[in-house]
Design a binder for these strands. Structure first.
Length: 647
RNA sequence: GCUGGUGUGGCUCAAUGGCAGAGCAGCUCAUUCGUAAUGAGCAGGUUGUCAGUUCGAUUCUGACCACCAGCUCCA
């Protein structure tokens, strides 16, 4: 007999060799049916795993992340099996579970189409119905390689050969006629995948390397219950309605035109106004916090970028003006502000007393992104960022980094995006030295400093290997768009290298010249990208302080226009963005339009209001909130506007 | 850059190898109205661009451009 410690600490005795599945059954049929995988002494494993020693056992269901992952990973095996049945010549690559679903990559001659996905789904349904058990087995590398080569599975062979010579066994899973190289774990049988759907097909490079062959990827999702899946798919569709790229164009925030070019959106008055509001707010706040505004050129000779390293590491991403072969001087539009603000630092000799020195700039940058990368306002070729560079002593680094982070947090909270972000500690990839300047020691030091700072601040971060800038590690504040795609909204970077390249020094208290540490940071990110995410966050219905048009006056009929105009002037003089709809339309029509344009407040003015000296107030999303005196109304919205209340 | 898809008035969408049509929006006139669409009329298109096939192309073919999703890259 063995002692098995269950969740909650209860200990039960079982026959040695009993499987986790049987224990789940013993604990209750509900748990047995819901069980996906288990954790034995903290390690996830198949439910079929026999227990041979005393252990701690946890049964995991779809509600646990590991359970969900295994469930969907099994769904990806079913997908691969179905594809192999329908297209025996298809070569298998990899098929993991991901957030919200799974995918599988195949090498096929003819790309998959949505119609083919339906066919594959039908075959998958059959496999589910067959309720094939998933059985794990282990073989030697040589035997595994022989299997892969015999089956023509060149991608599997590549994966297996990486284990050659290590004396490891290779793990496989078998379900019916289908054998798959896989570390597991998996759910016990294919019959448990009650609800699944293949959602899309697209190309994807083998091993994520653009130099390697492009395979065909099929994405799908799977749930234990059909209604849960329906709810998920409906939520995905609902989220797409907030897509800034559609909504932003419909509501007149921005547009693009063929003759200007890719990644070069036109900000229309509404979009430009929101960005102006953000910029003024950001510049004022930065000034309050000790940042000094610079205005530096949009371009420079190649010489500048050669010092900074951009010429060697970033040239493909720059718009270069001129030809290096023919012209005496070659210029390039700036892709970053760093080397320009460093020149401001170099303007005179600095002492430790000048530090920290904080330069901010509302900085327009140009990056020649590859043609397939552009996306609405999120990824563009010209953008304006709340840029900043801070020069400090090593002792000041932690405190200043913290202040930069606090500023970013303050901005995120003010605009309402704080609860939507996650943190990534972006480190270099020591195996990809081409991408980075500096020595291992320098990287270890810079990353060590940042780790200490982040841990000290208690930031909950993920590590992104190979995500660092070429000159130093970054704290990236990440956000997802309505399609679930993650982008960097804000970044704060530590740079212990570039100061030396530029000859930036300060005289320390001991009279010795030293290179300052530099923090590169943004406080609210790129205005275009931030605007895009705000449009998605609020579905175009901005809080009062950010709304391009805050108030619209709606006179009931023509004779009320003059009075309305007086109110408009009064609100205008208080600084509100207010218009008057004087068209000869019925009030319902005017309300409908203002509602569709997502204007925060509508004020109706008719005989009653003029007689009583009131305003009939409609608040977006709430409708009629009743009559108020003009004074009551203005004091209400002045407060709301000043406090930047988020609805 | 790669894989797949899309491109018809400002927007949403029809249609066709033979004069390109509707609704909304716009403009004009009438209406002066109380909380999400008043009525009538008018105007608006070299069907993304450029080639090719054809008696004739918006439709078929090709190249390019732009847009969309994904990959890679990135703020």
């Amino acid at each position: 007999m063995i002692k098995v410690t269950l969740k909650g600490g209860t200990v039960k005795e079982y026959q040695e060799g009993i499987s986790a599945m049987e224990i789940a059954k013993d604990l209750g049929m509900g748990l047995y049916k819901a069980a996906c995988v288990c954790k034995i002494d903290g390690k996830t494993a198949d439910l079929r795993t026999p227990l041979t020693n005393d252990c701690e056992l946890q049964i995991l269901t779809f509600d646990d992340d590991d359970g969900k992952y295994a469930f969907r990973h099994t769904a990806s095996h079913i997908l691969a099996q179905a594809v192999k049945r329908l297209y025996p010549e298809a070569k298998l690559a990899i098929g993991p579970a991901i957030d919200n679903g799974f995918y599988y990559d195949f090498d096929v001659d003819v790309p998959f189409t949505p119609e083919v996905l339906e066919k594959i789904e039908e075959e998958m349904k059959k496999i589910v119905k067959e309720a094939l058990p998933l059985e794990k087995y282990e073989i030697d590398v040589d035997e595994a390689l022989k299997w892969a080569n015999d089956a023509g599975e060149i991608y599997k062979a590549e994966l297996i050969s990486e284990h050659a010579g290590k004396g490891e066994k290779i793990t496989f899973y078998k379900q019916g006629e289908f054998n798959e190289l896989c570390a597991g774990p998996h759910i016990p049988d294919t019959g448990r995948i009650k609800a699944f759907k293949l959602t899309s097909c697209t190309g994807a490079y083998w091993r994520g390397d653009s130099n390697k062959k492009m395979l065909q990827r099929i994405y799908g999702t799977a749930f234990t219950k059909k209604d849960e899946m329906e709810a998920y798919l409906a939520a995905v569709e609902e989220a797409k309605k907030r897509d800034h790229n559609k909504l932003g164009r419909e509501l007149g925030y921005f547009t693009t035109v063929d003759v200007i070019g890719q990644g070069l959106p036109i900000l229309l008055p509404k979009g430009a106004r929101v960005i102006q509001l953000l910029q003024r707010f950001v510049e004022d706040e930065e000034q309050k916090r000790g940042w000094q505004l610079t205005k530096t050129p949009f371009m420079a000779k190649s010489d500048l970028y050669k010092i900074s390293g951009h010429w060697d590491h970033y040239k493909d991403g720059m718009f270069v003006l001129g030809d290096e072969e023919k012209d005496d001087e070659v210029y390039a539009l700036r892709p970053m502000t760093c080397p320009f603000q460093y020149q401001a630092y170099l303007n005179k000799s600095r002492s430790y007393r000048d530090l920290p020195l904080r330069y901010n700039e509302t900085s327009t940058l140009f990056r020649n992104e590859a043609s397939g990368e552009m996306h609405g306002l999120i990824r563009v070729r010209q953008f304006t960022i709340s840029e900043g560079h801070l020069m400090c002593t090593p002792e000041q680094l932690e405190d200043e980094f913290k202040k930069c982070l606090e500023l970013a947090m303050f901005m995120l909270k003010t605009v309402g995006l704080y609860e939507d972000v996650s943190f990534r500690f972006s480190q270099w990839d020591p195996d990809d030295r081409e991408k980075y300047i500096g020595t291992t020691e320098q990287w270890d030091e810079a990353q060590g400093s940042m780790k200490k700072i982040l841990d000290h601040l208690g930031i909950n971060y993920k590590i992104g290997v190979g995500e660092a800038a070429f000159y130093g590690p970054k704290l990236d504040i990440q956000i997802k768009n309505v399609f679930g795609k993650e982008d960097t909204l804000i970044t704060i970077q530590i740079d212990q290298m570039l100061a030396k390249n530029f000859g930036m020094e300060y005289v320390d208290a001991d009279g010795v010249k030293k290179n300052p540490y530099i923090i590169h940071r943004t406080s609210i990110g790129c205005y275009e990208r931030t605007l895009a995410l705000l449009i998605e966050k609020y579905a175009g219905a901005f809080p009062l302080w950010l709304a391009p048009e805050q108030i619209r006056l709606l006179p009931i009929s023509d004779r009320h226009q003059e009075y309305a105009e007086g109110i408009r002037q009064k609100l205008d003089s208080l600084g509100f963005r207010v218009t008057c709809d004087n068209r000869s339309e019925k009030i319902g029509y005017k309300i409908r339009e203002a509602q569709l344009e997502k204007i925060p407040y509508m004020l109706l003015i008719g005989d009653k209001e003029i007689e009583n000296g009131t305003l009939s107030v409609r608040r977006r999303g709430e409708g009629d909130i009743g009559a108020m005196t003009t004074d009551d109304y203005t004091s209400m919205i002045l407060k709301e506007n000043a406090e930047k209340v988020i609805w």
